[in-house]
Design a protein around this nucleic acid. Structure first.
Length: 682
DNA sequence: TTATTCATAAACAGCT
DNA sequence: TAGCTGTTTATGAATA
């Protein structure tokens, strides 16, 4: 079984169905694929990650404050115990250091999914952005849950220890009872926080926004709507703080915690930083700034900082507006100093970058697989011919094997590496061509006078026959192909119509439109020559005129110019198609034959074999062509000649060049009955 | 910005 | 006369 990762949709496939499925990808209209804005989603992931982390930071800060309060109570309790009984428990001292481990340490060292594990996950299967998002969120939530559980556990142990101590002392002053009561209340509030998270998780699950894998000990904290969790936390915070004495809550800055503001807000970035209780910053980290490194970098590159651009702080989740660079530095040093929050954010950013890098690597791998698939598609059981455009005369340059290294294909995974760079080649099925509704304006092939390859159509023949997908070829190319596929290289208008409807399901509708276009093209283009014969008027193709349709702006050898017209045509259409594909939300781009170019050596021999076969076929004057036959059998007689090619003048890496030869042999083989045809061609 | 190519639509004429 | 065939023109989009 395979799993198709062509798109973000993971779909298990059997070996036999893999190619069909890939072909489905090439055939499915883009409108049905629901393209996913990958980059925007990644940005969204980052945003939500920061958002979730901000929520987590808030909880962390609240816990820190509560922990600090608890510590104070414990200290008071300890002092009271020492005063009363002079008893000092060694166990308590053992426990105390563990309690002093900042929660942020656990936060900064997530052990839920290590980067290595995440990499393994990503290597095992390509995760879609949604899955990555969920995974990331789950990881964040698991981290938070671990922290909560750890803290809760410590609190519980402390409580039990204290109870034991109190029982041991045989005295229970009222204050101790109050402290114990407060601790119990705090534990209950911690439980409430967990329950709230669980409830929110359940609500998300009900909404289908989050899926939890079975057996996963997840307490995922989905990125919450702005202001939702803060409100709940505010209530929780009030409950927590209300458990303490009034002088402890009203005398400090707890009230300054503006929990109504969102933790991450682009509009009010200054509020993103939590106003910490002085007690919360137990180690004073919040007040410690280390701007030296930044300042040094700024001195080297004044007003240039990766975190500063367009007057906005680029710190993840901040976007604070800084009018000038000094103000940004001030903001950076004040809001993003070296503290737990910044460190945690940095770590989150590292994870984000790491995941993006992994995803990028995976996408590259996927692209490679796609390219490989497209390269070897000609070897499918369909046994389609090699995707060489042999319709026109082909000249194989000596320098084919002497192409510059950078021009050589970088696809070592397949022996059928393309002549062109991996991102180049004619487009057979493009995303644009998948739009079956309405006329299309884009054109990917035939843009440089090079018509569709016979193999291009042949390898997608079944697809075009059955799917109402507009072929991405111009009318001229299609007409030319129809004519060239005919045994006598000439067709009546009605036969051209029939070829269109036979070969393309798309042309079985809107006959008036495309037939008019066919007639228009036949009349408009000089490359189509009307010939009167016994059957009436038939249409033939003048290759010279066809190649002349758009001269390339290449200076140098005129023959090279012609050659480049053809060779370049292999490069640009797919480039455009790729760009279009990228523009259209990274919908996979599919080509078939055109990308299955063999290596240079194989290509040369293949060309010669094909050309020789074609010449023999034509010279034998056998008209075995049928509607279903291979288009390669219908190629024109061609000449294989070796022509020096100046590499400096060659614009592209292609050495396979086609010349629009209009040789006497060519005219002879066309075997026109009307001599006027040759005159017209001349 | 300009020129070119292409698709589409439409009008028109000639022929069967 | 209707339909087919062929020519021509116009327009807009895409692209070099």
């Amino acid at each position: 079984m395979f799993q198709c990762v062509f798109s973000s949709v993971l779909q298990p496939l059997s070996t036999s169905c893999l190619f069909k499925h890939l072909f489905y990808h090439s055939a499915t209209p883009a409108s049905q694929k629901q393209p996913e804005p990958i980059y925007s989603k990644r940005t969204e992931i980052q945003r939500q990650t920061v958002q979730a982390h901000s929520v987590k930071l808030f909880i962390f800060s609240a816990l820190q404050v509560a922990r600090q309060l608890l510590l104070q109570q414990q200290q008071q309790q300890q002092q009271q115990q020492q005063q009363v009984s002079g008893l000092k428990s060694p166990k308590r001292n053992d426990k105390q250091p563990a309690l002093q481990v900042p929660v942020s340490v656990a936060m900064m060292t997530p052990q839920v999914i290590t980067p290595q594990q995440m990499q393994q996950i990503l290597q095992q299967q390509v995760l879609s952005p949604q899955q990555l998002q969920v995974l990331l969120q789950q990881q964040q939530a698991l981290m938070l849950q671990q922290q909560l559980q750890e803290f809760y556990k410590k609190q519980q142990e402390q409580l039990q220890l204290q109870l034991l101590q109190q029982q041991h002392a045989g005295k229970q002053p009222k204050e101790q009872q109050q402290v114990a009561t407060q601790q119990l209340a705090f534990q209950q509030q911690l439980l409430q926080m967990q329950q709230l998270q669980q409830q929110h998780l359940l609500s998300l699950q009900r909404q289908g926004l989050l899926t939890i894998q079975p057996g996963q000990p997840a307490l995922p904290l989905q990125p919450l709507p702005q202001g939702m969790i803060p409100t709940e936390l505010q209530q929780l915070w009030k409950e927590v703080t209300s458990a303490h004495t009034a002088e402890e809550t009203t005398g400090n800055n707890h009230s300054s915690l503006d929990l109504t503001t969102t933790c991450v807000s682009s509009s009010a970035p200054s509020k993103t930083s939590l106003i910490m209780n002085p007690h919360a910053s137990t180690n004073g980290q919040l007040s410690v700034h280390t701007p030296k490194r930044e300042s040094m970098s700024h001195e080297e590159h004044p007003h240039s900082h990766p975190l500063y651009g367009h007057g906005v702080c680029k710190w993840p989740g901040c976007e604070a507006v800084c009018e000038d660079f000094p103000s940004f530095l001030k903001h950076l040093n004040s809001e993003h100093a070296l503290d737990d929050r910044s460190t945690a954010q940095c770590r989150v950013q590292m994870q984000v970058v790491q995941q993006l890098e992994l995803q990028l690597a995976k996408d590259k791998e996927r692209l490679q697989a796609m390219m490989t698939h497209l390269h070897v598609k000609s070897t499918e059981p369909k046994a389609a011919p090699q995707p060489l455009n042999l319709v026109s005369s082909v000249t194989l340059s000596k320098s084919a094997s002497e192409a510059s290294p950078q021009s050589l294909p970088h696809t070592p995974t397949t022996p059928t590496a393309p002549l062109t760079p991996v991102t180049q080649g004619p487009s057979v099925i493009t995303t644009t061509s998948m739009h079956t509704v309405g006329p299309i304006r884009r054109r990917y092939s035939d843009k440089y006078n090079v018509p569709i390859s016979s193999a291009d159509i042949a390898q997608n023949q079944e697809f075009y026959k059955n799917a109402e997908v507009r072929p991405p070829f111009t009318y001229a190319s299609l007409i030319r192909q129809a004519i060239l596929e005919s045994p006598e290289k000439q067709l009546t208008l009605n036969e051209i119509y029939n070829w269109f409807t036979r070969m393309f399901a798309y042309f079985r509708r809107n006959a008036a439109t495309w037939k008019n276009a066919v007639r228009h093209n036949l009349s408009l283009h000089k490359c189509f020559v009307r010939v009167e014969n016994v059957k009436g008027a038939v249409w033939t193709v003048d290759e010279v005129e066809f190649q002349k349709r758009r001269p390339q702006k290449i200076s140098g050898n005129p023959s090279l110019i012609k050659n480049m017209q053809s060779s370049h045509a292999y490069c640009t259409p797919l480039n455009a198609a790729l760009q279009a594909s990228m523009a259209e939300n990274s919908i996979p781009l599919y080509t078939t034959a055109s990308m299955g170019n063999p290596t240079l050596g194989n290509l040369a021999s293949a060309i010669r074999e094909e050309l020789n076969g074609a010449m023999e076929h034509t010279n034998s004057n056998e008209s075995d062509s049928s509607p279903g036959r291979s288009p390669m059998q219908a190629v024109h007689p061609v000449h294989v000649k070796e022509e020096p090619l100046d590499p400096e003048e060659a614009e592209g890496p292609l050495s396979l060049v086609t010349t629009a030869n209009h040789s006497p042999d060519f005219d002879h083989d066309r075997d026109y009955e009307d001599e006027a045809v040759n005159e017209d061609i001349e």
